[in-house]
Structures are given as C-alpha cells and as structure tokens.
C-alpha cells in the first residue's frame, strides 16, 4: 500500500481554502476570497502569489469604475493539482479502498 505525497503548495490552510473556493466558481475578486476565508489582506495576497507562482492561479489586475480590482481564476494546472490532492487525501482517509 503506497501513500501519495500531499502537494505542499496546497497543503496549507489558506491556500487550500482559496483553491477550494475557486474550484467552484469561474472567477472571484480578491475581496470575495478575503471575506470567505476571513484572512487578512496581506496574508491572502502572499498566499495568492504563491499559488500564482506555482501556476495554479491566474491573477488579473484591472480597474473597474476607477477602483483597482484583482480577479483570481484557477488554471487547468490548478484543477489537476487539486484533483490529485483530493485523491491523495482519499488514500490516507480510506487506505483499504486503494488496495
């Protein structure tokens, strides 16, 4: 029985929360992610950048009615990584199912 290694990029509370939110929607503003995760703006910004650097998120910075707006979208690589993470979790939770 082999346990899959959990992706260290996703195996963090806030990064996992951000990816889980974005997996269910097409795109979301930074403010939405901040509200739903209850994170501070600084911390959230750092974690979003880590996810972006890993290629899991696409971050679009634009202006809407003269206000800066940051929009986040999950990428194909991010979706694949999330699916792998969930599969790996399942091997830990239900080891008998994987035999």
């Amino acid at each position: 029985m082999e346990f899959k290694e959990l992706d260290p990029i996703l195996h963090s509370q806030l990064r996992l929360a951000v990816v889980s939110l974005l997996i269910s929607v097409r795109e979301a503003e930074f403010t939405f992610l901040k509200e739903k995760t209850n994170a501070t703006a600084g911390n959230l910004s750092v974690q979003i950048n880590k996810l972006k650097d890993a290629g899991y998120l696409e971050v679009i910075k634009q202006f809407n009615n003269n206000y800066p707006q940051t929009i986040c979208k999950i990428t194909k690589k991010g979706i694949d990584a999330f699916e792998e993470y969930v599969k790996a979790l399942q091997t830990y939770m239900n080891p008998n199912d994987q035999q």
């Binding site: 195996h11 929360a17 889980s20 939110l21 269910s24 993470y85 939770m93």
Partner: peptide
C-alpha cells in the same frame, strides 16, 4: 483538509 474543502465549496 477535507473540512476546509467542504466548507469553502
């Protein structure tokens, strides 16, 4: 981890 995924979705 599973609880976070569930809660956020």
């Amino acid at each position: 981890s599973l609880a976070i995924i569930h809660q956020m979705i």
